[in-house]
């Protein structure tokens, strides 16, 4: 009978293992942590932490003060020569395409630096200037403590790794925060038209 016992044991292992793999991949939808992070946010939007940021003008703004508006968030560092350049250009384009909601305050663009030691308000202002970003509706800011930075990266699911040549690589995306202050959506970077279209549908 060992062969029957073996079949039984293997079948049980298959059922149990299959169940574990199903859960571990969100029903075979998410094989990478990036997909998983996007799915998790859609299913259960996490509240963004009420941390205080220092902006390009040196002013302080708490994320809780932005409630009541939609916020598009990206994570950057100003010395970046790759992805954040694309992200910066993208926010500048969104300033044009979503000019009306940005002007009347229904929407805010927020770039958060994950390199606060280097990115002083002057550097943050220069970063926005580089993309000819205008003053209205686009905040470029840095967290004021390491704890706040870690809390932000954790909530938004952003992983920053040194690239080995004195810079960083991170999972660049555009994060959408709703007026209740919840992270509701994570969008691919690199397609500002699609982002603008989606936001026009969402905005009242």
């Amino acid at each position: 009978m060992p062969i029957l016992r073996t079949l039984l044991a293997s079948a049980l292992l298959l059922v149990f293992g299959g169940a574990v793999l199903t859960v571990a991949t969100d029903g075979f939808h998410a094989f990478t942590s990036e997909t998983a992070r996007r799915l998790a946010v859609r299913r259960e939007p996490p509240p963004v932490p009420a941390v205080t940021l220092e902006t390009q003008s040196g002013a302080h703004v708490n994320l809780a003060e932005l409630r009541g508006r939609w916020v598009l968030v990206d994570f950057i560092y100003t010395r970046c020569l790759t992805w954040c350049l694309a992200l910066g250009g993208e926010f500048a384009q969104l300033q044009d395409q979503l000019a009306a909601p940005l002007a009347d305050g229904r929407l805010v663009l927020l770039s958060i630096s994950f390199d606060p030691a280097h990115d002083t308000p002057a550097e943050l202002a220069a970063y926005r200037q580089r993309f000819r970003g205008r003053d209205h509706g686009w905040l470029v800011a840095r967290p004021t403590s390491e704890g706040d930075l870690q809390q932000l990266l954790h909530t938004f699911g952003v992983t920053v790794v040194p690239d080995g040549i004195d810079g960083y690589v991170h999972n660049a995306a555009i994060q959408v925060v709703d007026p209740q202050g919840r992270l509701v959506l994570i969008l691919d970077a690199g397609n500002p038209q699609a982002v603008a279209q989606l936001m026009r549908r969402k905005l009242p």
Binding site: P2, R5, A9, L13, G17, T35
Partner: peptide
Amino acid sequence: RWNRHGISSLVLASLAGMFWMLPRS
């Protein structure tokens, strides 16, 4: 006695191996 020809072993090891091959793991 539950592992004739090592079949149960292979099933278990393959499933656990698949889990640890997932990039998100």
